[in-house]
């Protein structure tokens, strides 16, 4: 089987660009990345079809060895339809995110951030039962203050890095 190097190279470039854009936070850029990525992948399917040949129609008595392998084309058509649908969904999601928050960035895990903040502020888990463990002091207020300060600092830090 001989395959076209130009197709493979184009596919590689498109996939590389797509992956790079995929690493971004903004959903619009991710969408652009997805477009490039899915086109690159389609190229790979054309490469996997092997030696290019005539259109894949077989009439009675025609030589089927001179035509292009039709199966990858069938697969790539399915893949194109699916990625078209996902692109539109991502577009809608991005718009909705913009509508709600004024930006379309993929956010961090909120609960994870809480656990991390508590760890940094050296607090016990929110559900740790102090009376059970024999620690009998009323630190709820202090705790809340410490946590609020930590949250503030974290928010500031995020803001600072965002600018």
């Amino acid at each position: 089987m001989t395959a076209s190097l130009a197709l493979a190279a184009t596919g590689a470039v498109l996939i590389a660009a797509g992956v790079y854009l995929f690493m971004e936070r903004s959903l619009m850029r991710i969408l652009a990345g997805l477009l490039s990525l899915s086109n690159g992948v389609s190229m790979l399917f054309l490469v996997s079809a092997g030696t290019p040949g005539g259109a894949s129609f077989v009439a009675d008595g025609s030589d089927s060895s001179t035509i292009t392998d039709p199966l990858p084309q069938a697969m790539v058509l399915t893949a194109i339809v699916i990625s078209l649908a996902t692109n539109i969904f991502l577009l809608a999601l991005s718009y909705r995110s913009f509508q709600l928050d004024g930006h379309d960035e993929v956010a961090d895990d909120v609960e994870d951030a809480i656990v991390r903040r508590r760890a940094e502020a050296d607090l016990t888990s929110a559900t740790f039962d102090e009376t059970e463990a024999g620690i009998d002091h009323d630190t709820d207020l202090d705790e809340a203050a410490v946590e609020a300060a930590a949250a503030k600092a974290a928010a500031k830090e995020q803001k600072g890095s965002g600018e």
Partner: peptide, 21 residues
């Protein structure tokens, strides 16, 4: 969730292309 799943779908397609080739 959507972004992660999309990436895995793309990887799946690449795998399919390689396997078929």
């Amino acid at each position: 969730y959507v972004v992660v799943s999309l990436l895995s779908s793309m990887l799946f397609l690449i795998t399919l292309a390689i396997t078929y080739a």
